[in-house]
Amino acid sequence: MSDITQAPAATGAMPTSYRPPPRFPLPALGSTPFAILAIILWGLAFGGSATQLQTAAGAATGEHADAAIAMVTTAFNLAIFAAGAVGAVFVDGVGAKALPAAIVALAAAALVAVGFGRRAAFRPGR
């Protein structure tokens, strides 16, 4: 029986102890239709969030709506910059294999923040 650490023989045959790595559960991963579907779902989920936040900020601040909407736009741009910079440092330092765990942790933190702030932010009738 051949050792897995040895290179395959010149015949191109794989060592007998070779096992292919497990596949990701999504069969279409890496395919164009899967990428298009992901883009469509992302757009449906978050495409209108900037407009909704600007409208809510403008309604909540009354006569200072122009300043509030400018701050929302600035916050979005800073968040995009910060996410890119922190993500690059993270991937360079820890590696891309840690990204899924980091994404789940950040999503959980965002869910907790939304849960605590949902009653305080933009109350109806205000």
Rank of each mutant, 00 (worst) to 15 (best):
M1P: 11
A88W: 04
A109N: 00
P20Q: 02
F24L: 10
L44G: 06
V91S: 14
A13G: 02
A50N: 15
V86P: 03
M14F: 11
G115M: 01
A120P: 05
V104S: 14
A59F: 11
G117V: 03
A28M: 07
T61D: 06
R23M: 11
L44I: 10
M71T: 15
P22S: 03
L111M: 04
A79E: 10
Q52K: 15
A102W: 04
I103C: 12
L106C: 09
Q54D: 01
V72S: 09
A110W: 00
A79S: 14
A70I: 02
G30K: 13
L99H: 07
P20R: 11
V114F: 03
G93V: 13
A108H: 04
G93D: 08
P15K: 12
T74A: 13
A50P: 14
A108M: 07
M71H: 15
R123E: 05
S49C: 07
W42I: 08
T55N: 13
L106H: 09
A59R: 14
M14Q: 09
A121R: 06
S31P: 06
A38G: 07
G84K: 01
A56E: 07
A67I: 10
T11L: 01
G58P: 02
L106G: 08
A9P: 00
G48W: 15
G115P: 00
V89M: 08
A83R: 05
A9N: 07
W42F: 11
T61G: 00
A59G: 10
Q52L: 15
A9C: 06
A96M: 09
A120M: 09
G84C: 06
A109C: 02
T32V: 06
L78Y: 12
A82V: 01
P15G: 02
V104G: 09
R118L: 08
S31Y: 13
V91P: 01
A88G: 14
A45K: 02
R119M: 10
Y18L: 02
G87D: 01
G43T: 02
F90R: 12
L106Q: 08
F34W: 12
